[in-house]
Design a protein around this nucleic acid. Structure first.
Length: 858
RNA sequence: GGGAGCAUAGCUCAGUUGGUUAGAGCACUUGCCUUACAAGCAAGGGGUCAGCAGUUCGAGUCUGCUUGCUCCCACCA
């Protein structure tokens, strides 16, 4: 009745078919981590054609940061797909990288070693960091020494990350590991940048820029974090001919930077003042009163002071009304020491000169109070202020020269193209596309990529100096591609010699580095060997899948779409699978700043990787999920159940002979198994790993609870008995297939059991197909048997007796069809129910029912 | 203020194009040492599908409104 698609020949493992006495989960991870590493089980073997490859772009974690369970879940989601595709026969290109460049690393190095980078300090080849950092006296060290320390520390961090990912069981290609600060990455980042410059997709511009005073660097729109920030409204009088004009401000320290008062053109209250002038309190600077539609009549008093620069509206006014720039805040976040030329009275200026913003504010308020220009007391308010996401002071706006890459923020045509690129991607789940559309639609400037920092990819650019040693920013000297990677601070541009560095008529290096996103926006190009390995690039790019959590759609996802659009005229990948967050039990987002993170190593140790992965697989793409320890226990129980059930199956004697499967109950099970294979496959193909797991799990539990119990006695029969052979062959085939269905989710326990009687890794085995089992029996048969079993067990439970209590008389009720099903497996039914007496069959129209008479307990 | 998602058992979640009596796991109750597993097995209780209104022979499912929660974006006078 049943023939296998192809006879299977099972080769015993080298160790022999060893089923342990007491299987345990402990120790499996160490054992298989070592084996997979030694055998390079997940190696990418380069095939001839793109169609044979499945390539995946994964987020390079910031190695100086810390990971929490949310990361583990998200990376697991990717691995589930990778393992499924590998078993489907794809050559899975699954590189991983470490994001080790950038500010987080610098900050960690500063704290770890107690040092600070000072580019003016010369390199010390014999430098060794202090054994015990002294936070009060940071050691000032040269940029090369600082960068060396960054490399040292990230190396240590990277080892810990690799250990974690290996424990989680990620089947990445470790030989394709990249880092964002490696020579290759620098080369890719510099080459792509140079091409952007040549095509005028990147440009240098002096403009007001959001500036972090702590880190003293520019930051990009994507790195902003709007936070509540306590402040106070100060009602301040400016002086006009007709009397005082009151404004409200939370930033009175900027009165000295004021360039105009501005109200809405239709605002009757101020219409008469337009075109006239007022003078500022304390400083007596004469200022025009102007009209602009961006002024909001219902904010404050309806008339605002426009400063250089208090907020982005000030920048708009400065630009559109062509106002002068009156900068008073320096890049260190302090009021400038020298009195600006528009302030007449030096004594007034000296009050705030050199002060921090906070103390300057207090001093100015005291001055206003003394001069009578403060109307009433300041009223506290909670306002939103822009912060750098890694900073803890509100951003200032300063005018600086920076490199930008066009992203559509200042170009409607490009914006439309970027939206179209987003629409070309397959989004899993689909609604994540709206996040992309929202972000791109709301861009209000190009992408600022330069950072005034040290550990990062340097811009491959110099500027020539004129006779006064002033740099010519309009004509940057670009490195030629064949010299990459270059460090302009030590390399010399063509046609110059090192002796001309910094000299009149000579040259100077661009001092900045690229933001880390500028490099990580090229991970598909870095990983796939762009410009370095054309054959690899051809078979891996555009990639098949991009995965990460939804918070970096606006940053990492979007920036890669931009770079691939410019460089490759394509999308970087075909689809994006977006993970949700793990929330704390109060349904709050897990984050380091909230202090509610769960350290993954603890959880992995307590429940095991298979259990944690099982839990991750229960979370569908895009959905947030609360973290619950109890859920892990269930996963652990399943892993253990797989071990125990396998022990039973193989303990009865593995029989890889599908032709021996002849009994109706056995054939019916295989019919159900076939349906499960189809369902799991369909689900995985649709990236619905959760449903794939659920269908397999449901089959497996029913297999254990009903089928295994039903055939237990028969399976123990003598080898020459055809019923016993049928049971054993069914058990063996079912285990073989179920293990493979579980393999992407629980790689450890499935590999362990596989090794008990098969050679090779289950992770290199093929995903099951329904054709492996050719069935002609009715899957309903076992369902009817289960229904009868429930009745028999129920009777015993109700009587509060043991399941092994004998039944002296059993009456089965049901349709002729159902009774036929039960009669077909009557011996099994007698065995599992311990029916020792008579069996009576009663045909009815109703559902299956069983009446039993229990023998008196022994 | 703009956008998105969610609301089904005490908890976490399924519930295809509307169609019998709304499901699962956990938790809970009760029973069972049953030779794969007591980290197990068996049986059971538990829901006004957030609320209101509508479409329909029929609504957890479709439409509108309301409420609540979460996330993203905007909001610095």
């Amino acid at each position: 009745m049943t023939t296998p698609a192809e006879p299977r020949t099972d080769v015993p493992t080298a160790a022999g078919a060893a089923v342990p006495e007491k299987p345990a989960l402990e120790g499996l991870e160490d054992k298989w981590i070592a084996r997979w590493k030694a055998d390079d089980t997940y190696a990418f073997i380069r095939p001839a054609s793109r169609a044979e490859v499945y390539s995946i772009d994964t987020p390079p974690p910031t190695v100086s940061g810390s990971l929490h369970v949310g990361h583990v879940f998200s990376y697991t989601h990717t691995d589930l797909i990778a393992r499924f595709q590998r078993m489907r026969g794809k050559h899975v290109f699954y590189p991983i990288g470490w994001d080790d460049n950038g500010l987080p690393t610098e900050r960690r190095v500063q704290n770890f070693y107690g040092v600070r980078c000072d580019p003016t300090v010369p390199y010390d080849p014999d430098f060794t960091p202090p054994e015990k950092p002294d936070p009060k006296h940071e050691l000032r060290i040269s940029r090369p020494n600082f960068v060396e320390l960054c490399h040292q520390l990230t190396h240590v961090d990277e080892k810990a990350f690799e250990d974690l990912w290996r424990r989680v069981g990620l089947s990445v290609n470790w030989s394709s590991l990249y880092t964002t600060i490696s020579a290759d990455s620098i080369m890719v980042a510099q080459k792509a940048f140079l091409r952007n410059v040549v095509r005028e997709e990147a440009y240098l511009s002096e403009a007001p820029t959001l500036w972090d005073v702590t880190f003293q660097t520019a930051v990009a729109q994507a790195e902003l974090d709007a936070r509540d920030y306590p402040g106070a409204y100060h009602r301040v009088a400016f002086h006009a001919a007709g009397g005082p004009v009151f404004i409200e401000t939370t930033r009175p320290e900027l009165i000295a930077a004021c360039v105009a008062l501005i109200a809405h053109p239709d605002d009757e209250r101020y219409r008469s003042l337009f075109g006239s002038t007022v003078t500022s309190p304390l400083y007596g600077v004469e200022l025009p009163v102007l009209a602009h539609p961006a002024a909001e009549p219902d904010k404050g008093t309806g008339i605002a002071m426009c400063c250089t620069f208090g907020d982005l509206t000030d920048v708009t006014w400065w630009r559109e009304l062509q106002l002068p720039a009156r900068v008073i805040i320096g890049r260190d976040g302090r009021i400038m020491r020298d009195r600006p030329e528009w302030i007449a009275d030096d004594a007034t200026w000296q009050v705030i000169a050199g002060k921090t913003i906070v103390s300057a504010r207090e001093l100015v308020v005291a001055g206003l109070r003394a001069s009578g220009d403060l109307d009433g007391e300041p009223t506290p308010t909670l306002r939103k202020a822009n912060f750098y996401e890694k900073g803890d002071k509100p951003l200032e706006i300063v005018s600086t020269r920076q490199w930008y890459i066009r992203n559509g923020g200042r170009d409607e045509d490009l914006k439309r193209v970027m939206l179209e690129r987003g629409a070309d991607l397959e989004w899993i789940p689909p609604h994540m596309r709206y996040r992309y559309d929202n972000w791109v639609g709301g861009l209000n400037g190009d992408w600022l990529i330069s950072r005034q920092r040290f550990f990062g990819v340097p811009f491959p650019v110099w500027y020539s100096l004129d006779a006064d040693a002033e740099p010519d920013y309009d004509h940057p000297i670009l490195a030629s591609e064949d010299r990459l990677p270059v460090d302009p601070s030590s390399d010399v541009p063509a046609g110059f010699s090192e002796s001309q560095r910094g000299k009149p008529g000579g040259f100077v290096a661009d001092p900045d580095v690229m933001d880390t996103w500028a490099t990580s926006s090229l991970t598909p190009q870095i990983a796939c060997g762009w410009e370095r390995d054309p054959e690899l690039f051809d078979v891996t790019f555009p990639m098949d899948l991009n995965t990460h959590a939804h918070e970096i759609i606006r940053t990492w996802l979007f920036s890669r779409v931009v770079r691939a659009h410019f460089e490759n005229h394509s999308v970087p990948w075909l689809r994006c699978m977006i993970s949700g967050f793990v929330m704390d039990p109060d349904r709050k987002k897990m984050s380091k700043s909230r202090g509610n993170t769960v350290v993954p190593t603890d959880v992995l140790e307590r429940y095991g990787s298979d259990a944690v992965r099982w839990r991750a697989a229960k979370i569908r793409p895009g959905l947030d999920s609360p973290f619950d320890q109890a859920e892990m226990k269930v996963g652990r129980r399943l892993a253990l159940k797989v071990l125990n059930a396998s022990k039973f199956v193989l303990g009865a004697g593995a029989l890889s002979d599908p032709a021996a499967i002849t009994e109706p109950a056995d054939l019916s099970l295989l019919a159900q198994l076939t349906a499960s294979i189809s369902e799991a496959t369909r689900s995985f193909e649709a990236y619905d790993y959760t449903s794939a797991l659920e269908s397999t799990e449901q089959f497996f539990w029913q297999f254990c609870d009903d089928y295994l119990e039903l055939v237990k006695e028969r399976a123990y029969g003598p080898a020459e008995d055809s019923g016993a052979a049928s049971a054993r062959a069914t058990l063996t085939l079912t285990l073989d297939i179920v293990l493979r269905l579980f393999a992407p989710i629980m790689p450890y326990v499935t590999e362990e059991v596989w090794s008990w009687w098969k050679a090779g890794s289950i992770h290199q085995a093929r995903w099951p197909v329904p054709d492996e089992v050719v069935v002609r029996e009715d899957p309903e048969l076992l369902s009817d048997v289960s229904a009868a079993l429930i009745q028999i067990r129920g009777a015993k439970t109700q009587a509060r007796v043991s399941m092994k209590t004998e039944i002296s008389l059993a009456k089965f009720y049901g349709t002729a069809w159902a009774l036929a099903h039960l009669q077909a497996v009557a011996p099994d039914l007698r065995a599992v129910g311990r029916i020792t007496g008579d069996v009576i069959w009663v045909e009815t129209d109703g559902p299956i029912a069983v009446d039993v008479t229990l023998a008196s307990p022994t």
